[in-house]
Amino acid sequence: MTAALVADRVEVVFDQFRALKGVSVAVQPGESFGLVGESGSGKSTLLRAIAGLAPVASGSITVNGKPLGRRRDKAFYRQVQMVFQDPYGSLHPRQTVDRLLQEPLAIHGIGDSEVRIRRALEEVGLGSGFRFRYSHQLSGGQRQRVAIARALILEPSILLLDEPTSALDASVQAEVLNLLEQVRRDRKLTYLMVSHDLAVINHMCERLMVMQNGVAVEQLAAADLVSHNVAQDYTKRLLKASEGFVRAG
């Protein structure tokens, strides 16, 4: 079986700064793979490099067996879509939900937008009452649902999730995580999900990779987190931190 997504020794350099120092990862079709790390670890950069939003200095990226060139073609965007971290920043402030969902269809020349938009809103649990709202008329959770609908409307097979719930309240996070699990099951999607929260990754992913300072620290199965079967000190520290504050002495 060919992997859905392979990154091979990918390097990303921004003005002399090596944000990603040769990171490799392979995600199987239908798998949910997590990237964990703290700020500056390069986890978001890897996601953006795959999406074509960060300059790849060397290394290769393969999607569904097809190596990607320097420029992404339109076919790529129908296979891979992305959900951003900040739902307040990822929706155009001057466009209605309707217009936001229309845009990908218009770009790819897909017809029957009426039906597709209604179905997409339905799928993410927003009724048609939300269709003509502007993003400032939506709550954070509703915005993230719109962002997910927008990513799904092109019917991609791979979804890149960049901290999709870290800007949300805990109760809203639970709803959005459930929605993401639901659509993954329904559409047999492959997820590559970035988060700083080990518990979220543990909940959502089968396998994960811990990153630090632009390097992969180690790859684990989600079960390894539960059994504390981790090799690297850094992962142990992350694991300990996720359990909350422990008073010394």
């Binding site: 996070q173 518990a199 543990n202 909940h203 996720s242």
Partner: peptide, 11 residues
């Protein structure tokens, strides 16, 4: 509603 490591609750 918070995910916990080890607690396997879906959804």
């Amino acid at each position: 509603c918070m995910p916990k490591i080890g607690a396997d609750r879906h959804p």
